[in-house]
Design a protein around this nucleic acid. Structure first.
Lengths: 132, 132
DNA sequence: TTATAGTTTATAATGGTTCTAAATAGCTGT
DNA sequence: ACAGCTATTTAGAACCATTATAAACTATAA
């Protein structure tokens, strides 16, 4: 299995549940955005056995900590994640709550001129809100 | 009172509670960021009578809809608001969850090269996450 | 195989936010 | 000033995403 090493290498035991979640998240043509509820549904559709909601939360957080997923900063009652972990930005369609990737080249370089003592920049994220 | 007209002009009745919340939010030297809980505390400190939590939520949402407050897109369990409604961006200190304003001039112009059919850009917000 | 630490699970608990419905208070026309 | 109407406030309940709990299970290394 191709995800076993990935998990082992990052100190996560390759359990059946994690491997199945890897299939759903990473064995895809394209990257995608999701909330936990959407992921839960996707898992139900693609997997025979049940994976508990707690495990889905645990796994998503574990994967995010390891850098296999990114959280997207949006104002919503649910947390949005992205399987696209490259440096990029988002359109946010206010009407339906859907996200669209914006390649870095679609935004151009962002140069933060101000520095904060003793802190370093972990990420720079641009959110472009869309309305009709 | 200086806030009575502001409220009337935007179709909001100038009630005692709203005027008091205006004082806390807008009668300040500097703009500031807050969560509802922090605002509730500030109100308790500055106002004699009690304002119910539901009213605080109602008022903040009413003010946001009228454009007197802005929501800041951050991943947190609480919603962050800003009394600075000018076009600007934020540092987000992951350690303590505090925000710092980034003037537009500190970030430089952002040029979104991609367009989405039938949609127009409502806002462009940059979040710069800080770590130690 | 066995011991151990890591993982999964159902379920309960938490906590921010929204809803409800009754009481109160602005507002408009008279 | 008053009546009537609608907006607003309020306490408390409800909601719902997320996190905690603690017991059962499992991967792993010796």
């Amino acid at each position: 299995m191709k995800y076993i090493d990935k998990l082992r290498n990052s100190g996560l035991r390759p359990t059946k549940q994690r491997l199945q979640i890897c299939e759903v998240l990473f064995n895809t043509e394209r990257t995608f955005h999701f909330t936990i509820n959407e992921l839960e549904q996707k898992i139900k559709d693609k997997i025979d056995n049940k994976i508990s909601l707690a495990t889905i939360y645990n796994t998503v957080h574990a994967f995010e900590k390891k850098g296999y997923l990114k959280q997207i900063p949006v104002n919503s009652n649910q947390t949005y994640f992205d399987t696209n972990i490259t440096d990029h930005h988002h359109f946010y369609n206010l009407k339906d709550g859907k996200l669209i990737d914006l390649e870095n080249s679609d935004v151009g370089p962002i140069n933060i001129k101000r520095k904060i003592d003793g802190k370093k920049i972990k990420s720079i994220e641009v959110l472009v809100k869309l309305e009709d």
